[in-house]
């Protein structure tokens, strides 16, 4: 059975907005990230396990607020005290999580079906996020993450790269349509390429 992505029937590829006369390589690029596994890992309050020793896909569980441990396949976001989100395109990531996180210490929840991830890349990417989000993004650097709101929609920002700005924006799947249109409406001013 083929999996239907949240934006499959909503996002049409092409150039949109104020793109005429602009270098097409410099336009904002928007794409949906699909075929990734998303797991929420929560350490129980009664657990005494030292998480600094844990690793998944050779990435540590950071205890630094707003930081991401990442390699090319897996990103582990700090989402709150003793709460992490693992986003990976590694097919055996679940086995790795289960072997690293004992069930008496951690609750592991598969969120892959219930989130939409929109990737936005380009010199003006940060300006597009600033249009709807109150977070101070001037202090954001590569491999920083945060949860916030975008025009009232709760979402998480994960900064993949800083030159040019490349962000993964993750929101609830049920908000995929509204969230996508909020992002693309904000991008019209600069012109964008939907991939």
């Amino acid at each position: 059975m083929t999996r239907i992505t949240p934006l499959e029937t909503i996002a049409n590829t092409g150039l949109f907005g104020n793109f005429v006369g602009k270098n097409k390589d410099k336009l904002i690029r928007i794409s949906e990230i699909s075929n990734v596994k998303i797991y929420q890992i929560v350490q129980y309050k009664i657990s005494k396990l030292n998480t600094s020793l844990l690793q998944i896909d050779n990435q540590i569980f950071s205890t630094q607020p707003g930081s991401v441990s990442a390699n090319s396949a897996t990103r582990i976001q700090w989402n709150g005290p003793k709460v992490w989100t693992v986003i990976s395109n590694n097919k055996n990531i679940y086995d790795q999580i289960i072997s690293s996180c004992p069930e008496e210490d951690f609750a592991v929840t598969d969120l892959s079906h219930s989130r939409v991830i929109i990737q936005i890349e380009g010199e003006n990417a940060i300006a597009i996020i600033k249009k709807g989000c109150p977070l101070n993004l001037n202090e954001f650097t590569k491999n920083n993450c945060a949860n916030s709101v975008y025009h009232g929609i709760t979402f998480s920002i994960d900064m993949i790269n800083d030159n040019p700005g490349k962000f993964n924006l993750m929101a609830y799947r049920s908000f995929a349509d509204s969230f996508y249109h909020a992002i693309t409406d904000a991008s019209l001013e600069y012109g964008y390429k939907q991939e």
């Binding site: 607020p65 707003g66 709150g80 005290p81 109150p134 977070l135 101070n136 945060a146 949860n147 916030s148 709101v149 009232g152």
Partner: peptide
């Protein structure tokens, strides 16, 4: 001015959150 609240875990954030 927007009201900012300092979350003990995340730092200064907008009241909207």
């Amino acid at each position: 001015d927007m009201l900012e609240i300092k979350c003990p875990y995340c730092g200064d954030r907008s009241q909207n959150e």
